[in-house]
């Protein structure tokens, strides 16, 4: 599951997942029927509208052992919100299919560490990096230190601590537009902490948050690049 955002805006992150999983010997498929997890609708209050999107999701991903996504947020939506959408639909068959697919959806670091049991993915990335734990990966999924464990095994990578790391970057999906001023205020503080960390590259597990923080870092002409965790782990 590459997620709609990566598909259209950040295909490199998704390609990196494919490259990384191939390297680890995983048989990867991209079910072409997939679109979006439905989170943009659900989190804006359009649960009704999310019903066909979720229906499409379970159609596309039925029958796989594991569904891997480079997004804590999308994994969180599937695992926590699809059931809500199912209830809203009143469709018992859909609810059952959701109950089957949801638990098999993994965020990338969960899949690598828990399912594949690897922490050293054989990557090399000789740069100074700081890691932002995105809210949904940290608090909704509870990925804990899996991403930093993976990063600490990457050859040449120097990991710098991000001040106030667990604070939200202010993206929040629809929040970034509906409450743009507050969102930017939060993101500016995050960008400042990133600069203070002294890293050349900011890494996170969600392209959406990276787009937001990266957009602010870019506007501030900070010179700090943003990269998805998958891209770093895929580098050799």
């Amino acid at each position: 599951m590459v997620t709609c955002l990566n598909d259209a805006l950040f295909p490199d992150a998704a390609k990196a997942v494919v490259r990384l999983l191939h390297r680890l010997g995983v048989d990867v498929e991209f079910p072409e029927g997939q679109t979006c997890c439905g989170q943009p609708m659900v989190n804006t209050g359009y649960v009704e509208e999310a019903v066909p999107v979720v229906r499409n999701f379970v159609d596309a991903f039925a029958g796989y052992d594991a569904v891997v996504t480079p997004s804590g947020s999308c994994a969180g939506c599937v695992r926590h919100q699809h059931a809500i959408v199912g209830r809203r639909s009143g469709d018992v068959a859909l609810q059952e299919r959701i109950a089957e697919t949801s638990p098999r959806v993994y965020e990338l670091s969960e899949f690598l560490v828990d399912v594949l049991g690897v922490e050293d993915v054989g990557a090399s990335f000789p740069h100074t990096v700081t890691y932002h734990p995105t809210c949904h990966s940290l608090r909704l999924l509870g990925v804990g230190d899996r991403p930093t464990r993976l990063l600490s095994q990457v050859r040449g990578l120097r990991l710098r601590e991000l001040p106030q790391a667990s604070e939200c970057c202010g993206f929040g999906g629809t929040f970034a537009v509906k409450n743009a001023d507050t969102s930017v205020a939060m993101g500016s503080d995050k960008a400042r902490h990133v600069r203070e960390s002294g890293a050349e590259v900011l890494v996170a597990g969600d392209s959406s948050c990276l787009m937001h923080i990266g957009g602010l870092l870019g506007r501030q002409r900070s010179g700090v690049r943003v990269m998805h965790l998958a891209e770093v782990l895929a580098s050799t």
Binding site: C4, E32, G33, Q34, T35, C36, G38, P40, M41, T44, Y46, E49, A50, P52, V53, R55, N56, A60
Partner: peptide, 11 residues
């Protein structure tokens, strides 16, 4: 959002 949902309901 309805337009987006319509787009997302089919690949």
């Amino acid at each position: 959002l309805q337009a987006a949902a319509a787009a997302f309901s089919s690949a």
